[in-house]
């Protein structure tokens, strides 16, 4: 079920990016290049969709960031020919003068990067491409108004294992495809370690829960434990707030997002 037609997927996403850029009356796109798989894939697709000259990849290291992250981000930029800018955010973090634990620091880094990316997008008349994939968006494994802040999500309906296949297809360097996925918010962090399961299993379970609407008891009969499925279901439910507009207190007859309903592309043209 997770196997997709890679050529069509690439074409679909390229068309999507073009429609988002022209719909916003912008010229190009910016994205954070973390050195990881998701941003590498989006960089590859957007460089083909808009031409590499219309793409700016931002490398935003913090002093604790892994050296590989920068090297791999440069490798991606070189491979797809996109322009890059390196802005070290360590001083921005230091200026905050708060004693914080690593989780708060992780969120802070994601949100400071968001500030820089959005500012750079204004400067270059570009839209911000989110690089979240379907797996992390469903699990809420992302920072609200941090890495989730974006003008559009080109790979938001593509599971992580599909991201890997598509990345291979469009020529993302092997070293990036093969390394363990990490948000690199603290040394040694890995996604799978933190989420407590492998992407292989997470994607199969999510596909059955979300796309196939299978009851969890049925999923449990297919080589997964009920507690494993329930843990994923709970993560999905607990992170719903990240996937919708915050509620508006209803006062009038036409409240935004309740009975004032227009698609986002209303603004096009």
């Amino acid at each position: 079920m997770l196997e997709i037609d890679l050529e069509r997927a690439q074409k679909l996403i390229e068309g999507f990016i073009c429609s988002c850029v022209s719909g916003a009356s912008m010229k190009g796109a910016v994205l954070g290049l973390s050195g990881g798989l998701d941003s590498a894939l989006v960089a590859g697709i957007v460089s083909k969709a808009l031409g590499p000259d219309n793409v700016l990849g931002l490398l935003l290291p913090f002093r604790q960031s892994s050296k590989d992250s920068i090297e791999h981000a440069k490798l991606v930029a070189e491979k797809f020919g996109v322009k890059t800018k390196i802005i070290d955010i360590s001083n921005m973090v230091d200026g905050y003068h708060e004693e914080i634990d690593r989780f708060r620091l992780g969120n802070l880094l994601a949100r400071l990067r968001m500030c820089v990316i959005f500012d750079q997008s204004m400067a270059s008349k570009s839209i911000v491409l989110g690089t979240s994939n379907k797996t992390e968006m469903l699990l809420g494994y992302s920072t609200w108004y941090g890495d989730m802040a974006a003008g559009c999500y080109p790979i938001g309906d593509i599971y992580k294992t599909q991201v890997r296949a598509l990345a291979k297809y469009i020529g993302v360097p092997d070293v990036i495809i093969e390394k363990a996925p990490s948000a690199d918010l603290w040394p040694g962090q890995t996604d799978e370690g933190e989420i407590g399961n492998t992407y292989e299993r997470l994607d199969q379970i999510l596909d059955m829960l979300v796309d196939q609407r299978l009851p969890k008891e049925k999923i449990a009969q297919r080589g997964f434990s009920l507690s494993e499925v329930e843990a994923i279901e709970l993560k999905m439910r607990k992170s719903q707030f990240k996937r919708v507009l915050p509620p508006v207190c209803k006062v009038t007859g036409r409240t935004i997002d309740q009975d004032f309903r227009y698609i986002r592309d209303w603004s096009v043209g």
């Binding site: 079920m1 196997e3 997709i4 037609d5 069509r8 997927a9 679909l12």
Partner: peptide, 10 residues
């Protein structure tokens, strides 16, 4: 809507 992309297209 183009949807449900499988290994052999939509």
């Amino acid at each position: 809507p183009a949807r449900v992309l499988g290994k052999n297209g939509f």
